[in-house]
Amino acid sequence: MALRVEAHRALAETFDSAADADRRAWHLATISAGPDEHVAAMLADSAERVRARGGFAAMAAACERAATLSPDPEHRGRRLLAAADAGRLDDAGDQAARAADFITDPVALARVASVRATVADEQHRPRSAHRILTDAGLAADGNPGTAGYLLFRAVDSAIVAGDLAFVHETAERTAQRPEGRRALALARMATGFGSEASDEIADGVRALRELIDITEREVGALKLRETALVPSWYWALGDDVGGLELADRLVQHCREQGAIGVLPLALCALSRFESSVGRQYDALGRLTEADATRHFPVHQRRRPATPHRWMLYEPHRGTHQRRAGATSRR
Rank of each mutant, 00 (worst) to 15 (best):
R125D: 15
S128T: 13
A129H: 05
R131M: 10
R131D: 14
I132C: 06
I132K: 02
I132V: 13
L133A: 00
L133Q: 04
L133Y: 07
A136P: 13
G137D: 10
G137Y: 12
G137H: 08
L138M: 09
L138W: 00
A139S: 13
A140F: 06
A140C: 11
D141E: 04
D141K: 13
G142Y: 05
N143H: 07
N143G: 00
T146E: 11
T146M: 10
A147N: 06
A147G: 11
A147E: 09
G148K: 05
G148T: 08
F152L: 00
R153T: 02
R153D: 02
D156V: 00
A158I: 03
I159D: 03
V160D: 13
V160Y: 00
V160S: 09
A161H: 00
G162F: 04
D163A: 03
D163M: 07
L164C: 11
A165Y: 09
F166H: 14
F166K: 10
F166N: 10
F166D: 15
V167H: 02
V167Q: 06
H168F: 11
E169T: 12
T170K: 01
A171L: 11
E172Y: 08
R173C: 12
R173H: 09
A175E: 14
Q176K: 14
R177H: 04
P178D: 04
P178Y: 10
E179V: 01
G180H: 08
R182P: 00
A183Y: 01
A185L: 09
A185R: 12
A187T: 00
A187P: 06
M189S: 13
M189Y: 00
A190C: 02
T191P: 11
G192W: 00
G194R: 11
G194S: 05
S195P: 01
E196T: 14
A197P: 01
A197Q: 13
S198A: 15
E200F: 04
E200W: 11
A202D: 12
G204E: 05
G204K: 09
R206M: 15
A207F: 03
A207P: 15
L208V: 07
R209Y: 13
R209D: 15
E210R: 13
L211N: 08
L211V: 12
I214S: 10
R217S: 14
R217I: 13
E218H: 10
G220P: 03
A221Y: 11
A221W: 09
L222V: 13
K223Y: 14
K223V: 13
K223Q: 13
L224T: 12
L224S: 05
L224R: 06
R225L: 10
E226A: 07
E226N: 06
E226R: 09
T227Y: 11
A228D: 01
V230M: 15
W233M: 12
W235Y: 12
W235A: 14
W235M: 08
W235R: 14
A236R: 05
L237M: 09
L237P: 00
G238V: 05
D239L: 12
D239H: 14
D240R: 07
V241Q: 09
G242W: 02
L246S: 02
A247Y: 07
A247W: 08
D248K: 04
R249P: 09
V251P: 10
V251F: 00
V251W: 11
Q252N: 15
Q252K: 15
